[in-house]
Design a binder for these strands. Structure first.
Lengths: 359, 359
DNA sequence: TTGAAAGCGGTACCAA
DNA sequence: TTGGTACCGCTTTCAA
C-alpha cells in the first residue's frame, strides 16, 4: 500500500512523466519532425495531420518534456523570482502572495511557469548569478529594491531580461521597473490631512533602506513644506510593516512630547498596530485621531471591500505583478525594446476615520 | 542605452547564462567527464584535480546548466506547487506565503527550487497531469484539499511523489500528508470556552467544502456534545477566511435570535472582522464577549508577538511548509518508504480577551 | 585516474 | 508537405 511503489516498477516512467517523442512517433506512424512541427504550430504541416497529432497526443497522454524542449530551444519557459529568506520579513509576506497571483495570471497567458529561488539574505547577488548561470529561466523579476541597489549592475551585466518591482533611487543605470507612485500618493494623503486642519502629522513608514519608503517620505515632506511646515524627523518612524512595529511606533509617538493628531501609515498591517496603540491611549479613530493608510489591497484580507475604519490610498499589488510580468514578457520577446518604466497610481478612498481637526 | 541590448550581440550567451562544459573543459585542459565527476563528488577523481576544477569554475564563473543536467539525470531538482487562481481567495493568500517560506528553507538545504504552476480553478486535474507529463518537477506539494479530493487518485496513478498540505476526509486511498490537528485544536478551544462558563458559542469557520474546516467543526461539535450541549447549526458560519466574511458572519450572529457569548474563529483575518462587528454592536472583546481564534502565525502580521486582544490557538504554517517539504524529499529519495503522515499540534495561548462569563 | 562516445528528448536545418 | 540528422549541455557506461 505504498503511494509511490508503482514508480520503481518502471524506472523509465519515472524519468519522464509519460511517453517520449520517439515512442509517440512510432505509435502514430509519423516522423518526430512532423509531430514537433504540428504541435508547435508550424504552418507547413497539413491541417489533417495536425489534427491527427493532437488527437493522438490527447488519447495517448503525450506531452513534450519541458526540459528537453528547453535545451533544444534555449528557452526555459519559466521566469524566476528570487525570494530573500528569513531575515527580511517584508519579503515573504502577504504582499508577495498577491504579487505572485498577478504575475501568475500573466504567466498562464504566456504558457510560462514561475520559478522561486530562495536565498539566504546577504547572499542575494550570488543567488542571482547562480540562477542565471544555471540557465533555468528566461527572465527575472527582482523584488524589494533598496536605495542603492547593487543588483542592477550585476543584472545588466548578466544580460538576462528582468523587471524590478519598485525602483532604486540612487542608481543611474538603465533598468526596467514597475512601481507605484509612492511620492505622489503620500503627498496627496498628507495634503488631505492638512486640508482637514491637521498640523501634527506622523508618518509610520516602512524600512528606512527600502526605496519605496524613501519616496513616501519625500511625498510627505514635500506636502508639509508646501503648507509651510518644516518636517520634524521625530514625527517619522521607519520599520518593518507589521502589526507589532506599527504598534510600537504609534505608542512611542503618542507618548512623545508632541502628540500627533493624525497618522499616515504605510501598510494595513502597521495600521492595525496603530489602531491598537490609539485605543490603548484611550483615543478613538475617526474622532480623536485621523488615520490615512496606504493599502496594497490584499485580496485575502479584504476581497475588495472597504478598509474598515481607515481612510485609504489604495493600490493593487496584484496589478503590479500582472504589469511587471507583462513587461518582462515584452522584454523577453524583444530585448532591445526596453527598458520600460511603468508607474501605477493609487486611488484615494475616503473612509470613516477622517477626523478630528476639521477646524 | 537599452538594458538588454547586449544580449543580442551574443546569441550564444543568451541561450545559456555562461560557458558550457565543453568550453570550460578546453580552458582548463581536462575532459568533460573528469570535470563532471569532480563537480559531482565522484570518488575516483584525484583530490588535486577536484580542487583545480572548483577553483577554475569559481574563477571563470562556470556553472552547469540545470536543464541539461536535468535531462541527463532525469531529475529536475525542482518541486512543484500548483496554485489555483482567482476563484479561490483562500489559496493565493498570506498563509500560502508563509508555507512557501517554510518549504523554501527545506529546498535550500536540498539544493532544490520551487516551481509554481498556476491553474484556472476547475482545471486543476488537468494542471497536475500536464505538470507531471511535462516532466519539470521531481515532486509535488498539493494544496487546499477538499473533502473528497479527486486529485489523490490521479496523483497516485501518475506515480510522482507528492505530499498534501492538509488531508482529504473521505478518501480511502493511501497518500502522504502534513496537517494540523484541527479537530483537537477546536475541541480544546471549545472546551476552554465551556470551562469559562459559555454555553452559546458560535463558530466562524472556513469554506464548507474545505477539509480543514470540516475537521474544525467536528472538534467544536464533539466538545459541545461532551458538555451535554447539542450543537446548533445556526451557530456555525462557513465562508472564506477574510475580514469581510468574518464581519458579515459575526454581525449576522449577533443580530440573531440567540446571541452568542463567545466566538471561535478560524483565522486572524476573520477575527478582525468579528471584532469590528462586535464593536459596532457596542460590545467590547474580553469584557462582553470571548473570542478564541485559530492563528496560523502569519509572520508578517505579527512577527511572533502576541495576538493582541484575542486568545489564540497558534500553529505555524511556516513549519507545515518545512515539514511537508522535508517529507517530500524523503519520498523522492526513497519512494517506497511512504506514505507518510504528520500531524502538527497547535499551541494554546491565553490572551487578553478571555471573558466574560467566568461564572 | 582519466577520456571517448552514446544517450537524455526535443528542435530545426536540409533534402526529398 | 514530410523525413533524416545534427545539435542543445550534461551524465554515464566502457575502455584505456
Amino acid at each position: 500500500m505504498f503511494v509511490c511503489s508503482c514508480v520503481r516498477e518502471n524506472e523509465k516512467r519515472f524519468r519522464n512523466g509519460g511517453m517520449n517523442l520517439r515512442e509517440f512517433s512510432k505509435k502514430i506512424g509519423l516522423s518526430q519532425t512532423t509531430i514537433s512541427r504540428a504541435m508547435n504550430g508550424h504552418p507547413e504541416v497539413k491541417e489533417a495531420t495536425r489534427l491527427r497529432v493532437f488527437e493522438a497526443a490527447e488519447r495517448l497522454n503525450y506531452a513534450p518534456n519541458v526540459r528537453a524542449k528547453a535545451m533544444a530551444t534555449g528557452r526555459s519557459m519559466a521566469i524566476g523570482h528570487i525570494v530573500p529568506l528569513s531575515s527580511n520579513p517584508d519579503m515573504v509576506n502577504p504582499i508577495f502572495s498577491d504579487f505572485l497571483a498577478g504575475a501568475g495570471e500573466s504567466c498562464i497567458r504566456h504558457g510560462y511557469e514561475i520559478v522561486l529561488a530562495f536565498a539566504e539574505h546577504g547572499r542575494l547577488d550570488h543567488a542571482y548569478r547562480a540562477l542565471v548561470a544555471k540557465g533555468g529561466v528566461d527572465g527575472l523579476i527582482v523584488h524589494d529594491p533598496v536605495l542603492d541597489d547593487g543588483r542592477i549592475e550585476i543584472l545588466n551585466d548578466l544580460g538576462l531580461p528582468y523587471v524590478m518591482h519598485g525602483r532604486s533611487h540612487r542608481v543611474e543605470l538603465p533598468y526596467s521597473w514597475v512601481d507605484v507612485n509612492n511620492k505622489r500618493a503620500f503627498e496627496r494623503a498628507t495634503n488631505f490631512l492638512l486640508d482637514l486642519g491637521h498640523r501634527k502629522i506622523a508618518l509610520v513608514n516602512g524600512r528606512a533602506d527600502a526605496d519605496f519608503a524613501a519616496r513616501r517620505q519625500m511625498g510627505y515632506e514635500s506636502a508639509l513644506r508646501g503648507a509651510g511646515i518644516e518636517p520634524e524627523p521625530a514625527m517619522v518612524r521607519s520599520g518593518p510593516m507589521t502589526e507589532a512595529s506599527g504598534y510600537a511606533a504609534a505608542r512611542d509617538l503618542l507618548a512623545g512630547p508632541v502628540r500627533p493628531t493624525a497618522f499616515l501609515v504605510s501598510s494595513i498591517f502597521s495600521a492595525y498596530g496603530v489602531r491598537r496603540a490609539a485605543e490603548e491611549a484611550g483615543l478613538t479613530l475617526g474622532r480623536d485621531l485621523s488615520v490615512v493608510i496606504f493599502d496594497d489591497d490584499i485580496a485575502y484580507l479584504r476581497n475588495g471591500g472597504d478598509v474598515p475604519r481607515f481612510t485609504a490610498l489604495r493600490s493593487s499589488v496584484h496589478e503590479a505583478g500582472l504589469r511587471a510580468s507583462d513587461l518582462l514578457f515584452r522584454l523577453i520577446a524583444e530585448p532591445a525594446s526596453g527598458p520600460f518604466a511603468e508607474l501605477l497610481e493609487a486611488e484615494f478612498i475616503v473612509g470613516q476615520s477622517t477626523g478630528p481637526v476639521r477646524e
